[in-house]
């Protein structure tokens, strides 16, 4: 389908906890799931990646203009990859990357890693597709009759 995927390295998981080795594990998983030729890295990445702007409580701080100003860095970084999916293996990152995508009207979707793993295994049901775009919403639907 020639769909391109990029991945957000969560600060908490990578730079602040397990470093580049876990960023490699993350890429191993993502590439296994989407195919190596469909993966593209943001620049910079891994331990040198920018924070999305959702961390440190920013999402709940009541400062949405500043938070989205911060997030413009991340938005531009994602757009430059040309990817139409950004995988966010962190809850804060997911909320922020999703929000800035809508705010700046970027043409990308924001995905939990679990969604993509189950999609690739053919076990993703119709009610587990909230964050898939139109191009993947109807692909390999597990038990489509259970749609709610």
């Amino acid at each position: 389908m020639k769909i391109k995927f990029t991945v957000q390295d969560p600060c908490q998981l990578v730079r602040k906890s397990f470093g580049d080795p876990v960023a490699e594990d993350l890429r191993y998983t993502v590439k296994a799931v989407v195919g190596e030729e469909n993966f593209i890295d943001m620049q910079p990445n891994r331990s040198n990646n920018y924070c999305c702007g959702g961390g440190g409580g920013f999402l709940q701080s009541g400062l949405p203009d500043a938070r989205r100003g911060y997030g413009k860095f991340k938005f531009d970084q994602i757009i430059k990859t040309g990817a139409t999916y950004c995988i966010t293996p962190c809850h804060n990152c997911h909320a922020q990357v999703h929000d800035i995508g809508e705010h700046y009207e970027g043409k990308y979707e924001t995905l939990h890693l679990w969604t993509l793993i189950c999609l690739s295994m053919g076990i993703l049901g119709p009610n587990e597709r909230e964050y898939l775009g139109e191009d993947l919403k109807e692909v390999l639907v597990f038990h489509p009759e259970s749609a709610m």
């Binding site: 600060c11 730079r15 602040k16 331990s47 040198n48 990646n49 920018y50 924070c51 702007g53 959702g54 961390g55 440190g56 409580g57 920013f58 701080s61 400062l63 500043a66 938070r67 911060y70």
Partner: peptide, 15 residues
């Protein structure tokens, strides 16, 4: 300064 709440403490500066 409200900036203390705008820094996400991501530690990229330390890196």
């Amino acid at each position: 300064s409200e900036w203390a709440w705008m820094c996400t403490m991501c530690t990229r500066c330390v890196y």
